[in-house]
């Protein structure tokens, strides 16, 4: 019993900042700055949400409510997240399946390279990439950001998918091969349906890691494209606290839902497929 109380109080400590953020988004500017903080008893105020998403703009014209663009920041994050995760998945499925099944000469070297790619400080990719992108006119474009996020997520996707494919019995491949199916057909029609849970997990984790990535998004997105973390970091002056809270609350809730869906495989994703829960 003591153990349970202790465990729950620790959980409370960890959830408190999230709770604090979400409640802040519903506070008016007086309650927001009051000390001791008003944790439960405060006047619920939706004005921050109205300003962030421009609801009131739909009803009446008010020039001070000009922040409708914040909705488009969430759209930016969605486009980059879904685009890069889809591309990651396409590349990762073939590579992961091949690494899982085949024994080739440079297999260990390839795995080491993938892990080394995971180790790279993102700033050391972002600086050279800035110049490369400048030459190819990829700065401030969705495709440029999608490509770099794909690269960032590839080590996770390839190794995680490999671990999921490792769990599909090799017998399936071999029987189908004897029956004369081509390897690509075996993968598409037998293996992918067997591993679709794992593929969904990889997809969701890739979206999350693209959603949270900061420095490359800052470097590549300039004026037109700003993902959610970049936008949030701009709103750090005190007058926009409530708007920042409303904006980030809206942007982290979809991630919470996604992660609770794949919670069982989350540890496996974090450890690139090595530790299973």
């Amino acid at each position: 019993m003591i153990r349970k109380i202790l465990a729950f109080s620790i959980a409370l400590i960890f959830i408190f900042p999230i709770f604090f953020l979400i409640t802040s988004s519903f506070k008016n500017n007086i309650d927001l700055f009051s000390l001791p903080p008003k944790l439960f008893l405060f006047d619920i105020d939706f004005s921050a949400y109205e300003r962030v998403f421009g609801f009131s703009k739909l009803l009446k014209f008010d020039p001070s409510y000009g922040e409708l663009y914040l909705t488009s920041r969430i759209l930016d994050s969605l486009i980059v997240g879904i685009g890069s995760s889809s591309l990651t998945l396409i590349i990762g499925i073939y590579a992961g399946y091949y690494i899982s099944r085949a024994n080739f000469r440079y297999k260990n070297f390839l795995i080491m390279s993938i892990l080394s790619a995971r180790m790279m400080p993102l700033i050391s990719i972002a600086i050279p990439l800035y110049f490369v992108y400048e030459k190819f006119n990829l700065l401030d474009t969705y495709i440029g950001l999608i490509l770099i996020h794909t690269f960032i997520n590839l080590p996770l996707a390839v190794l995680l998918l490999k671990s999921f494919f490792d769990e599909v019995p090799k017998q399936i491949d071999e029987n189908a091969f004897i029956d004369g199916a081509s390897k690509i057909k075996i993968l598409h029609e037998l293996i992918i349906p067997c591993a679709k849970g794992g593929i969904a997990v990889t997809f969701i984790l890739s979206i999350i890691f693209s959603w949270t990535e900061f420095i490359c998004a800052l470097m590549i997105g300039q004026m037109k494209i700003k993902t959610i973390p970049i936008q949030a970091s701009i709103m750090k002056t005190i007058p926009s606290w409530d708007m920042m809270a409303a904006f980030t609350t809206i942007s982290i809730i979809p991630v919470f839902i996604m992660i609770l869906v794949v919670r069982k495989h989350f540890v496996r994703g974090l450890t690139l497929g090595t530790v299973k829960e």
Binding site: I15, F20, E213, F214, K236, V255, R263
Partner: peptide, 26 residues
């Protein structure tokens, strides 16, 4: 009960670090 705690602990990990920074900035 401890399963619920594990779910709660998952939540901090998916917050964009920049936003976690913002929460603590406040």
């Amino acid at each position: 009960g401890f399963g619920i705690i594990r779910s709660i602990l998952t939540l901090t990990l998916v917050i964009p670090p920049a936003i976690a920074g913002m929460i603590f900035l406040i």
